[in-house]
């Protein structure tokens, strides 16, 4: 019994210590942001690997999610004779929820894992130590540009996800199911609010981008510098990042629409 309590206490202390380290890490990285402004090329380079290289999976997923939403929504709405509202349903589902959330989950899987693996391997091959010894702070030179790129890329990826979802929904609703095109677009235009719906979705995606990228870069920087350590850190990024997205989504939804 005492052993179990001891283990529980040790685990809790370990988690608290790691959380503290993660916040100090965040503080130090954010301190490097002002220095990035005159060297924005570093962020642009990372935007390519974090954002552009994630485009394919985001675009294809968004398209298919929109198509499925239209199919499922049509089956429900047709019973009430409200198929003209299909466009609104698809658009609201995407901009409020699925764009930021599914986008965030995909971002954690694609870009987050790549960030962790890259930084973890740089640590394992002593590249980060070499930078320190060259008087270059790796938190500012390596981590900060990736962090900023993640925060900037996530809302853009979520927006692309939602836009392609709407297009996918349009193809299925209008092209396949025969929903009136005018009603599809006009109802969407009338019911989707810029501030209430779109802006809240953008805020969600910024928060998810911040948290997922924070987890990804911290896991990489804090990884045990072995192949097993980097592998575990990469897994942690995907698992913790995804759980954080889902948990935060509930909190944000409750705050915004509750």
């Amino acid at each position: 019994m005492l052993d179990q309590l001891q283990k529980l206490g040790a685990t809790a202390l370990g988690v608290a210590e790691r959380l503290g380290r993660g916040h100090l890490f965040l503080w130090h990285v954010l301190g490097g942001f002002p220095a990035l402004l005159p060297r924005f090329g570093l962020v642009i380079n990372q935007l390519f690997s974090v954002g552009v290289l994630s485009l394919l999976i985001i675009a294809v997923s968004g398209l298919f999610v929109g198509m499925v939403l239209a199919l499922q929504g049509y089956n429900t709405l047709v019973d009430f004779g409200a198929t003209e509202s299909l466009g609104v349903m698809v658009a609201l589902s995407l901009v409020r929820e699925l764009g930021p959330v599914v986008g965030g989950l995909l971002f954690a899987g694609r870009a987050g894992s790549a960030l962790t693996a890259e930084i973890g391997l740089m640590k394992a091959t002593e590249q980060l130590s070499a930078m320190e010894m060259m008087a270059v702070d790796p938190l500012h030179r390596v981590v900060a540009p990736r962090f900023m790129a993640g925060i900037l890329a996530m809302p853009l990826l979520a927006a692309i996800f939602s836009a392609l979802g709407v297009i996918g929904g349009y193809f299925v609703a209008v092209g396949l199911l025969g929903v009136d095109e005018g009603a599809f677009w006009s109802q969407m235009q009338a019911k989707v609010d810029l501030y209430e719906d779109i802006l809240n979705g953008v805020i969600k995606s910024i928060v998810f981008g911040f948290v997922v990228t924070w987890i990804a870069v911290f896991e990489g920087y804090d990884a045990v510098p072995t192949s097993e350590g980097v592998s575990r850190a990469t897994t942690n990024t995907v698992v913790h990042g995804s759980l954080a997205v889902l948990g935060l989504d509930f909190i944000l939804t409750a705050l915004m629409f509750g």
Binding site: M122, T125, E126, Q127, S129, A130, M131, M133, M134
Partner: peptide
């Protein structure tokens, strides 16, 4: 004012 040569070179890949 200090340089260090790491065992594996630690070049930026």
């Amino acid at each position: 004012r200090m340089g260090m040569l790491f065992q594996n070179g630690a070049l930026l890949t």
